[in-house]
Nucleic acid binder design. Structure first.
Lengths: 348, 348
DNA sequence: AAGTCTTGGTCAACCGGTTTCCTCAAGTGG
DNA sequence: CCACTTGAGGAAACCGGTTGACCAAGACTT
């Protein structure tokens, strides 16, 4: 077989199939405004396949069509949450004929550079923006140079193009689990203040705590990191006079849960005998901690697919709207939750 | 300020600066084959800046120049190792005027699709291929449709374009640390067989063990995952007649170390009192495990930058060659290593 | 029989850059 | 004084697609 030293071009396909460039282009793009004999159509497809033809994305983009590419901007790939989201996005984009690129923007530090590289240089048709903080530089940039985009995970108020998960429901799931086990004083390690999902999760936690009639439901905020979780856990576990001691913690991220686990150990307490622990988001590592971690698995993959659906719809001319991924959070029971030691509190 | 509803184009800059497209193109690309008055040159730069001009990458690529983009293919972004590498690559690429894209290829499952999307559609000028397994489909594809590329992390034998780290050195660092603490029977959790760095690390481990005169240095292979580490650790810790029990383990990845930690706990042993543990690669999470994990930090970021340097050199016409990142592995001492309990072995 | 549809395509302009030859004016050596 | 270099920049072809306008020929009307 003669190797293919050069890319096959549209003209090559056209010549080989005995038709014009225009016909090939229209057939391969499945356009309806042209009538073609089925046999011609088949022949074109065959030839294209045989030659391994792929349209040059640049030429395509230039000719006024789209680049058939999107970009997903995430604050940190170190956070595996975003990796799962990106897989969903990539897969769904592929199904819709798009390529999903991935870019890390470190909480907006270089967001404008990324925007230039991807949008202004015409590499993508639209942007999926994960976890934009309020005041994110991209917000202003997008207002000035409008490009199709959606916000995912963290809603941007008033944007009318948010794709989010039911984080309130995750608080309910976690809290119900702890309540069933008998916990009556549960602490919540929240995310940073001022961020939509943090607030929603926290509010849902407080509401559900009230409904269930818990004795106390203290909250401490911290970054979505190990350190943030450790600090918040220390705060919640510190003895206090105006409420009984906490017997269970519910954290907003997996990293926080790992930090909390560490902090609990440093305080000389045991999980789950002294303190039960539930984290948000499930990943393999949760099963290999000691003890293994009970988590609420959020539909991250689905979040990615839903965001792509919304963005592609916008690119194709429909007007955007807010979307909530319907998949329910799922409780993954492992070793970090158990009934509290004594109805009265821990033995110290 | 009037927003910029449309991208500025080359002609816009040309008109505004009172020169022709050709001149602008040449000036902005810093070509030497043209003499331009310094003031004209300055004016062009000013106008381009003011208009926020960015060349359309597609048009550029079409016109025969390069796309100024690269792609880094990694087997899994779930492995934070690759995230660090990608940051190095991205940053260095940027410094060299390139954009580094990131693609996940799940150990080659869809590598050819990715290749088509990125290379055949003309989106990138070259490929950085991380951890190609032997028999990776891309190897054959690249042979048939040559594109500038380098292999990083895992060398591909005979390719003459490998960018790797000194993994042998990491074994020495880890083992010396354990030896100094007094360990004389150290087990190694290796990576899967047949993969260059696995073999290198293992061989270096065995060689150094011999030099140090250890009593025994058993090795067990496993995937670079938590489960792989757990299984291999169980194997190494199982009682055996022909050698004294292992008092320390050295793993090939952080995930393996987490799995090993878990397995050790399940066996009723304590870290570091009964078994010391050293992992490869350092990440924040290592500090928040219980106990915190001693690791050998590999120069992953530098690996990314070095790979980009090599690839860009190749794109610009130099011929490729093997490179070893000179940065030395660094030992990060934490809580998972300590002197063995008793010179004679553990008390059971 | 002439006009009108329909079917099955083709033509050529255009997208936004890059690059290869040109040109034109001013200086310069003979 | 004239042919010749040199400096400064321009004209136009081209890259590989897409797209709307157009066209030839047979089928169908009237």
């Amino acid at each position: 077989m003669p190797d293919q030293p050069v890319r096959a071009r549209l003209v090559d396909v056209a010549r080989e199939a005995g038709v014009s460039k225009a016909t090939v282009s229209k057939v391969l793009n499945g356009r309806q405004d042209l009538s073609v004999r089925p046999e011609t159509r088949a022949r074109i497809h065959e030839v294209a396949e045989a030659l391994g033809y792929r349209p040059h994305s640049g030429a395509r983009a230039l000719a006024g069509a789209s680049t058939h590419a999107l970009a997903l901007l995430v604050p940190s790939l170190g956070n595996p949450t975003y990796v799962t989201i990106s897989r969903g996005a990539y897969q769904r984009a592929r199904e819709l004929g798009y390529l999903s690129l991935l870019a890390e923007d470190f909480d907006g530090q270089e967001a404008d550079e990324t925007f230039n590289d991807l949008v202004k240089e015409g590499r993508v048709d639209g942007l999926l923006i994960a976890s934009a903080r309020p005041g994110h530089p991209l917000l202003e940039t997008l207002r000035r140079s409008p490009v199709p985009h959606v916000f995912l995970n963290r809603a941007v108020e008033g944007s009318g193009r948010n794709v989010t998960m039911d984080v309130a429901r995750s608080s309910v799931t976690a809290l119900d689990h702890l309540h069933e086990l008998g916990h009556r004083v549960v602490g919540h390690v929240a995310g940073p203040a001022g961020i939509a999902p943090s607030e929603d999760r926290k509010q849902a936690f407080l509401d559900r705590a009230a409904e269930l009639g818990l004795l106390a439901a203290p909250v401490a905020a911290g970054d979505f990191t190990e350190e943030g979780g450790a600090a918040a856990a220390r705060e919640l576990l510190a003895p206090t006079e105006h409420r009984p001691p906490v017997t269970a913690l519910y954290t907003s991220s997996l990293a926080q849960a790992i930090g909390a686990l560490h902090a609990i150990g440093e305080l000389g307490l045991r999980v789950p005998q002294d303190v039960s622990l539930v984290g948000n988001d499930d990943l393999p590592v949760a099963g290999y901690l000691t003890p293994s971690l009970t988590t609420v698995a959020m539909p991250l993959y689905d979040l990615g697919t839903a965001a792509v659906d919304a963005l592609v719809a916008e690119i194709e001319g429909k007007s955007p709207g807010d979307v909530i991924v319907p998949t329910e959070p799922r409780l993954v029971r492992r070793g970090s939750t158990a009934p509290p030691a004594e109805p009265g509190g821990r033995p110290d």
